[in-house]
Amino acid sequence: MPDELSAADIIAESAGPKAVAETDRAPSEEPEQFSPRLANARDMIITEHVDKWFGDFQALDDVSLRIKEEEIVVILGPSGSGKSTYIRCLNRLEEHDAGRIVIDDIELNEDVRALQAIRSEVGMVFQQFNLFPHLSVLSNITLGPQKVRHMPKLEAEALAMQLLERVGIPEQADKFPAQLSGGQQQRVAIARALAMQPKIMLFDEPTSALDPEMIKEVLDVMQELAESGMTMIVVTHEMGFAREVADRLVFFDEGALVEQGTPEHFFTNPREERTKLFLSQIL
């Protein structure tokens, strides 16, 4: 397991996880299985009995899930299963209709301050990149820090260059998004999200719109990010990534959380019929 090796680095690098006492919360049907390295980590994301409706269609049905700090969670499921909706609820691109969502001790509710706070805590990477086509790569990245965090321009640009180095394309800084390949665009999108120095990163099918030869360059960046200790929730169909990087896999179907467990558990011995069927189709 590569995790154990890097865990020491992570703890040295980031602020040490504060042990937060487990508060009383609704018992889930099964014990959540955490990777041993996260045994003492605090809860970063808590969702309890979350429902989401689109008109008459129930997109999320009583979803409860706790995610630890520095945990890498991969969400699987057929299309329309609610996995995207779930992570979009986490940064309030969608608003849940019932239940609780608490992110880094911030409750997502009617409070407008919570909304602003959560947006700078949580970074998001979209399937379609959603770079701003009228801004250069550099400006795409500096926009958030400058306008939201009020970072001076030079500092923001230095940060942006540093992040571009990290995702491996510093030479593209002055180009426009349309001049980049899909993989490069997605890496810029990751850099843009990181520029806000978020505690959590959400990935909504980050490789689905990419040509096969570009998928690896994006996955490599994501893996590097995972190893650096970021809390990540990834919706993806990349089973290789799920097996290698994830601490936990979560399977959604028809808006409900069907099964969760370690990659080992999933790939060797899934419990639910629906999970088996899905995995047999995708593998």
């Binding site: 608003e95 849940h96 209709d97 509710n109 009617e110 409070d111 407008v112």
Partner: peptide, 24 residues
């Protein structure tokens, strides 16, 4: 253009009125 629908989860009682989105 997309914008969060009004309503949402049950408001937490301790949010001051002025900061509630519905009120805004």
């Amino acid at each position: 253009p997309p914008s969060p629908a009004p309503g949402g989860p049950a408001p937490a009682g301790d949010v001051p009125l002025f900061y509630r989105r519905g009120f805004r």
